[in-house]
Amino acid sequence: MKLEVKGLSFTYEQRPVIQGLHFSVQDGEFVSLIGPSGSGKSTLFYLLGGLYRPQAGEIHLNGRLINGERGHLAYMPQQPSLMPWRTIFDNVRLAQELTRRTDRVRLNQLLKEAGLAEVARRYPHELSGGMQQRVAFIRALASDHDLLCLDEPFGALDALTRTRMQKWLLSLLEQERRTILFITHSIEEAILLSDRILVLSPSPMKVAQEVAVPFARGQERDERRGTKEWIRLQRELEAMLLPT
């Protein structure tokens, strides 16, 4: 699933939020967006998902114009947003209910891969924050959309749980090859997970820099944390985010 954003512009209450934004995400690629708070990253996801319509520019999926159209991607917000009255299985099943079909074999397989099979009949309040985030991610995967937009999914977790979730996501993505656009404020997280990192300017948002991560994805990359090459890249990205 290839995503192309061409000359995208959006104004909210007479304030330009996004202006002349250009970027692309190739099929199966993991691209992270990092930038100042309030730069318009979440607004971009609303535009991609069809909740907002751009004042200018085009959004293409596999060459098809989708401006203002919904139902083309899976979205995972910062908070799990699980329905407390539904079991874990039924929360995950929600993604398929929206398309009026339920593939129980597929859902049970996803829950098993995420280590959630034993809690499928429990309710959200019975799970830890990390497990709730896993449920939310599996719900996004269950939609079977090839494009996933993840909006700081680990931002509210403590450091230890966040590290575990990052490793879990890396292992899961080896099995579930999807095209991912990922918002994060953590440079280390962006390096760990991404093929490319787009450094965004303050509002109105544009791509200020584009950086290819030079390390192979997977366990090998995790083992490179703290190396000279890793620290050098991290400092370069930090410098890009400093105001000029």
Rank of each mutant, 00 (worst) to 15 (best):
E113N: 09
Q79E: 13
Q109Y: 15
I66E: 03
H72L: 00
R104Y: 02
A114D: 05
L73V: 14
L73S: 11
E118L: 06
R53H: 09
I88Y: 06
G115S: 12
G57F: 14
N62Y: 01
R104T: 02
K112W: 02
V92C: 10
P54N: 12
A74W: 02
S81E: 08
M76G: 06
P124L: 11
R106Y: 15
H72M: 00
D103I: 13
E126P: 02
M131C: 03
R86A: 15
W85Q: 08
L116T: 11
Q55W: 08
W85A: 00
Q78C: 05
A120L: 10
N67D: 11
N108Q: 15
I66F: 02
M76P: 08
H60A: 05
A117G: 04
A120V: 14
T99K: 14
G63P: 07
Y46N: 15
N67F: 12
Q109D: 15
Q55Y: 03
D90C: 12
A74E: 02
G129N: 10
L98V: 15
W85T: 12
T99Q: 13
I59T: 03
A74F: 04
A56K: 00
Y75Q: 09
R93T: 14
F89D: 10
G71K: 03
L48E: 01
P77I: 06
S128I: 05
R104P: 02
P84E: 12
T99F: 10
G57Y: 14
G115F: 12
A114G: 08
V119D: 03
G63R: 06
Q132V: 08
G63Q: 04
L82E: 05
L65D: 07
L82V: 01
M76C: 14
G115L: 12
I59V: 07
R64N: 05
F45A: 03
R64G: 00
A117Q: 13
L51E: 12
L44R: 04
L116N: 12
L127K: 06
P124E: 12
A117K: 10
M83F: 11
L47Q: 07
R53C: 02
G129M: 09
G115T: 06
T87H: 11
H72P: 00
E118F: 10
E126A: 10
N62M: 00
R104N: 13
V92W: 01
R104W: 06
L73D: 09
L44G: 01
